[in-house]
Write a protein that binds this DNA or RNA. Structure first.
Ligand SMILES: [Mg+2]
Ligand SMILES: [Mg+2]
Lengths: 275, 275
DNA sequence: TGGTCTATCTCGGCT
DNA sequence: AGCCGAGGTAGACCA
């Protein structure tokens, strides 16, 4: 569960050393860190930049990338895409004790120095969980909605018998029958299909063949890795490629429109191929 | 002064409607907003993306740009560079009341929908101030440090008499004497010089000429706008261009190194040209 | 690791 | 509002 801790400098008696200690402890824990502060910044690496004092927000993400935002603008004013080393120090500068955060990145070797003259607040976010799959243009479910309405995209004369059919070896995206009456297992992906997808399809085909003679297998995806493509060929499996951008248009202009208008999804019954 | 307010849902009795109200109020105030939440996101515009539920951080900056971060990775998963319209709503979705944030951008027309199923915390940052000037490669002060050591970069035989000389019309970056004994006013910029810079230099020259006969004026900058260049020409003023990247190298390899080694800056006395 | 190409690139400058 | 070029582009893909 997400737990958010807010630390203000008066919690620590405005002691810069204590602040550095608290922050240093969070670094190995790989928690997300947000520091609201007044700071000056210097960056040096592929280029160099200098930014005198101002109010900023420093974000340290769990992979130790660093993002510094000024109040205005969309882009961060300074950043570090993935720094291996982050450290906090107390340093005298311009006659005042400052909290110095250093972020060093290898390859290319780049340095980021943040001298904080005032720390307004620190937010530590623990336990964030985000395993969701990000889809561009269309999600796998949306692709399935399209294919259910337009099985001819996969192959002329194809009839969908079942969607998301549960078996002991996993959920088969579609079971269909081709125009020659043969059973077809279909695995759908919303991104480049890897070996995993090809093996998954193979598993489904073998499972169905236990009960229903010869079964075809089709992998539907925007593209395939070379290995996946070779695997399919080797095992007599097939592939159908689609253009995600075109699918997006079909989804927005047709499938979603109809669903929003209360169009009932045609329920298809699974003809019992296996008792 | 920076004031940070932290609101947790139990402050509002977990009332989604109240949350929407509180957030809606902050939008016209153009304050920086950070929402820690579990949400699903859809984006549609130049492209389209779909992201199911997960823990994320939604940042609304003062210019109403929107940045959404997952715990991992450097780049935001979804964003809106500068949205004109941000609104909060309560919407039923998947059988639950959700806080829906919509961000709409014109030109190109783009939409961002954030359905928040849980709001862990909201941080409102008021009164951030950041007027600092961001410099690439070298700051104006660093350029001055270099020129003070190497006046020959501007012109052979030039002798610096004064740095940051205060007058009634402003601070003159350098006053120098050329090899023919003429007085020179020098204005330094760390970025493309505009009309403002050209007029500034002209003002200084006219001011000095009140007391010391004919005075030259030189604008030192990486580049100039066409208008600035024409203005200089029209008023008999001069320009010297420099390569910021080369200046950066000089600064790092020489000027800063010497300063860090406790090299005392040579104090130059201003020969009294004007009583 | 290095080179090349893409991107909801963003951003600034100019027409 | 569109077009063009630069960027600490970052990130993905490929050799
Ligand atoms: Mg699938
Ligand atoms: Mg100046």
């Amino acid at each position: 569960m997400v737990n958010i801790r807010v630390i203000t400098p008066d919690d620590l008696g405005y002691d810069v050393g204590k602040l550095a200690d608290v922050l240093s402890k969070e670094i190995p824990a790989r928690q997300l860190l947000i520091i609201f502060c007044n700071c000056s910044i210097e960056y040096q690496g592929r280029s160099r930049s200098i930014l005198p004092e101002g109010d900023r927000i420093v974000i340290v993400k769990t992979n130790h990338s660093v993002i510094i935002h000024r109040p205005e603008g969309y882009s961060p004013v300074n950043w570090q895409p993935e720094s291996t080393k982050i450290s906090f120090h107390v340093e005298e500068r311009d006659g005042a004790k400052k909290l110095l955060m250093i972020s060093i990145r290898e390859s290319p070797r780049e340095y980021l120095w943040i001298w904080m003259s005032k720390v307004y607040s620190i937010v530590i976010v623990e336990g964030m969980e985000d395993r969701a799959h990000f889809s561009m243009y269309v999600s796998e479910n949306e692709v399935k909605d399209i294919l259910e309405r337009h099985p001819e995209i996969i192959e002329e004369g194809l009839e969908i018998l079942s969607r998301e059919y549960r078996t002991r070896v996993g959920i088969i995206d579609f079971i269909a029958r081709d125009r020659l009456g043969r059973l077809v297992a279909i695995e759908v992906k919303d991104e480049k299909a890897s070996m995993d997808a090809a093996k998954q399809l193979h598993r489904y085909v073998k499972q169905l063949e236990k009960e229903a003679g010869n079964v075809r297998g089709i992998l539907v995806a925007p593209s395939l890795t070379t290995k996946a493509s070779e695997y399919l060929e080797r095992h007599g499996l097939e592939k159908v490629l689609y253009d995600p951008q075109k699918f997006m248009e079909i989804y927005l202009n047709e499938v979603r429109k109809e669903r929003d208008q209360g169009f009932a999804r045609k329920e298809r019954k699974l003809t019992e191929f296996f008792q």
